[in-house]
């Protein structure tokens, strides 16, 4: 066995670093981070009838002077106009309430799955993941047929004799809640499940042995230990729902104006790119806090792993 030229193992490490870190970093920097800089830049521009439809932020005027024009108009508009303000408030409200609803429905489900017999658990979990793989758009669409005034739900309720005339559900805030909870429930259940299966059942037995009744055991052992899962699940629901477009557009009505839809309208219908950018920036600013919270808890969850 001949000994080849000595080489420090460090050399392959450097190469591995360069490829594994460098390439994805470069991609994300170029196509994820850089765009935000441009959005910020354009949010400070004025709309114009041009291609692209905004004024340049800086231009060279004669004698080589650089002229920079910053326009805070868009942000002032977002802050002052009650339309935008109420859209933001409504988005936050929908996100908050539907997160709570997902938690109320998702926690017991995740708990039941996590405590189910091993063989059943795999199937139950699969059934949670499966809808997530089918088209989101189509699943939202399915609710239109169910919720509309001559739809399946109303037919069913009338057939049961519970109501005489059809309820108006489609194009209301209620329909938005149904759609959001329906679409985002798996996002709540999966992290909760991951967390709850790691829970040591011995802890509950120890608590019971020390005189804690089942409810107390749940409140003082299970719930605090599953906090990381609760935060992760809640943020996975809350953050995207704030900017949701498809659900309010298809199921919501005029009362349930959400900022995602507003941004879409400003961009596609009104062709006001700077205003759309300003909306995106404000939305980002609102989402920073929950996002940082999610990151923190995620790291804590990983740190807690053996």
């Amino acid at each position: 066995m001949a000994l080849p030229q000595p080489s420090r193992p460090a050399a392959t490490q450097v190469l591995s670093r360069l490829v594994n870190i460098g390439i994805p970093y470069l991609w994300l920097g170029l196509f994820f981070l850089l765009p935000f800089v441009i959005v910020l830049q354009i949010s400070l521009a004025e709309p114009a009838l041009a291609q692209p439809p905004y004024t340049p932020l800086w231009q060279w005027i004669e004698d080589g002077l650089l002229q920079i024009q910053l326009n805070l108009q868009n942000f002032l508009l977002v802050g002052e106009d009650s339309l935008y303000l109420s859209a933001f408030l409504n988005s936050l409200q929908v996100a908050l309430i539907s997160t709570l609803l997902c938690l109320l429905l998702g926690y017991p489900m995740a708990y039941a799955i996590a405590t189910a017999p091993e063989r059943l658990r795999v199937v139950l979990l699969m059934l949670i993941i499966l809808p997530f793989w089918t088209s989101f758009l189509i699943r939202v669409y399915a609710w239109i047929g169910i919720l509309k005034s001559n739809g399946l739900l109303n037919d069913f309720l009338i057939w049961l004799g519970l109501i005489d005339s059809p309820l108006t559900i489609l194009h209301t805030q209620t329909a938005v809640y149904i759609g959001v909870v329906y679409s985002y429930l798996p996002f709540m259940i999966l992290p909760l499940y991951a967390n709850l299966t790691r829970l040591d059942h011995g802890l509950l037995e120890a608590a019971a042995d020390l005189g804690c009744r089942p409810f107390c055991g749940f409140m003082r052992v299970t719930l605090p230990l599953s906090m990381a899962g609760i935060v992760a699940g809640s943020m996975l629901v809350f953050i995207p729902v704030v900017g949701e477009f498809v659900i309010p557009d298809l199921l919501g009505g005029p009362q349930s104006l959400m900022v995602g839809k507003l941004l879409w309208t400003e961009f596609f219908s009104n062709k006001d790119w700077p205003l759309a950018s300003a909306l995106a920036i404000v939305m980002l600013a609102l989402l920073v806090i929950p996002f940082v919270m999610m990151q923190r808890w995620q790291q804590r969850m990983e740190g807690g792993r053996p």
Partner: peptide, 12 residues
């Protein structure tokens, strides 16, 4: 993973 689609779409 969590960024609203409208933001990703617009910025890109």
């Amino acid at each position: 993973l969590v960024m609203p689609d409208v933001i990703i779409g617009l910025s890109l």
